[in-house]
Design a protein around this nucleic acid. Sequence first.
DNA 1: CCTTGACCTGGAGTGACTCCAGACCGGTAG
DNA 2: CTACCGGTCTGGAGTCACTCCAGGTCAAGG
Lengths: 120, 120
Amino acid sequence: MRISEASTKSGLSADTIRYYEKSGIVPPIDRGPDGLRRFSPENLEWLTLLYWLRKTGMPMKEMQRFASFYRQGEATVPQRRDLLLKHEQRLQERRADLARCEEVLSYKLAAYDRIEGNRS
Amino acid sequence: MRISEASTKSGLSADTIRYYEKSGIVPPIDRGPDGLRRFSPENLEWLTLLYWLRKTGMPMKEMQRFASFYRQGEATVPQRRDLLLKHEQRLQERRADLARCEEVLSYKLAAYDRIEGNRS
DNA sequence: CCTTGACCTGGAGTGACTCCAGACCGGTAG
DNA sequence: CTACCGGTCTGGAGTCACTCCAGGTCAAGG
């Protein structure tokens, strides 16, 4: 498949995919006889994983390490697992942030209600 | 209180506070006779709110609008409420992202377990 | 006095994109 | 055949939200 399809299916923009390839987070994608990128299903799965990792706050440095482990084959599965476990922890922290923010918001909204109540 | 205290109490770095003041998200802070910023408790509350909004993904443009409503006084409470409600919706979306990512991760981790299982 | 530490300003640097100009290329319409 | 069109390419500039730094001021302590 070509880049636009890979983009819609993975969630990453075409620009971001090319940028990731330049940065070594995505392996060099095969080209067709026309010189355009052709993405394999494995490529797409990798992009999709990256999409979710990035969207939930994994920094690029870490994705690069992850990618380099990936390139080194199955022997690096333990290291890759460690990175994903670490990321799961990050998800926990984010969840806590969301909850804390929710609290702050409902406190603020309650204050607004009081003001509105007094005005009317 | 001075900037370092405002920083530790709000969660924002001193640099970020100064940057927010420059950008108009934080009102011009009063200065002491020494020319240094003196933060009032209201200033601190505002900074803390900004900290949580930013941390959970409100873009600066929107914080600027929020700040400008705030400067215009109580008449803008409805608009401010709208912005906060909109942000609550964003929190929902983020939560969904986290859940989706969690799924992706556990799928990947299970695959790793299978590989490790086969190797040993 | 001299140093230390917190603070100041203006400006450069960073991370992670995002947008754009200018070129190429295969296919359809006139 | 030629003219255009949409999708892709590359390299490079622009953006957002900080973050870091050089060079300077000032108050208090040794």
